[in-house]
């Protein structure tokens, strides 16, 4: 097994900066944006994006947390029951620009579940997706609006994102299972 660092801590910070500017756009609709992190590592990423936008504009973008466990399409196949950490969205999402935030975009199944869940809360004007890493390998017709880094991942390789809030330090590594 070999590990290759593809983003170190400064690179992660820079990517978050870029995501925050892209999400904020021209800054005219900050009151109608909601940044919603998908458990687990989407949650601190969404918070960082909100903090960056706040630093620049002085505005606090709405913030929420999404747990997609009850919307997964593979629960019947799973031997272990995932822990339900809970969804927390304390505002009506109607007519908002909802930006879903996650660490890695892979099959797209998590995003499908997240979109379904958001729609149970109301009718946003748009739903967008911001990810730190797009690693390809989609199994559904889903794409991200904002991408920190695109990584070409070969069969047998895996992307691991570590974030300071959860793991103690920031890094993105490419791990190959045999080498």
């Amino acid at each position: 097994m070999s590990n290759k660092t593809i983003m170190d801590a400064p690179a992660v910070s820079e990517a978050v900066e870029q995501l925050a500017s892209a999400v904020a756009g021209d800054g005219t609709d900050l009151d109608s944006i909601a940044s919603i992190g998908v458990h687990n590592r989407g949650v601190p990423l969404a918070q960082r994006i909100i903090a960056k936008i706040g630093e620049r504009s002085g505005k606090k973008v709405k913030s929420g947390v999404l747990d997609i466990t009850l919307y997964r399409d593979d629960v019947a196949l799973m031997r272990k029951k995932p822990i339900v950490r809970g969804t927390d969205i304390r505002f009506p999402v109607d007519d908002l620009r909802v930006v879903l935030v996650d660490d890695v975009l892979f099959t797209g199944r998590t995003v499908r579940a997240a979109i379904d869940q958001i729609i149970d809360f109301g009718r946003p004007s748009r739903i967008e997706l911001a990810v730190l890493v797009d690693r390809g390998g989609r199994e559904l017709p889903i794409m991200a609006n904002y991408v920190g880094k695109t990584v070409d991942v070969k069969p047998g390789e895996r992307v691991t994102v570590l974030l300071a809030e959860v793991d103690g330090a920031d890094s993105v590594t490419l791990e190959s299972e045999r080498n």
Binding site: D67, L70, Y71, V84, R85, G86, T87, D88, P92, D116, Q117, D120, F121, G122
Partner: peptide
Amino acid sequence: SLHEVSMRSIKKVP
């Protein structure tokens, strides 16, 4: 964690 479902506009998960 599930308490919140009953506070939504659509009080149902699939």
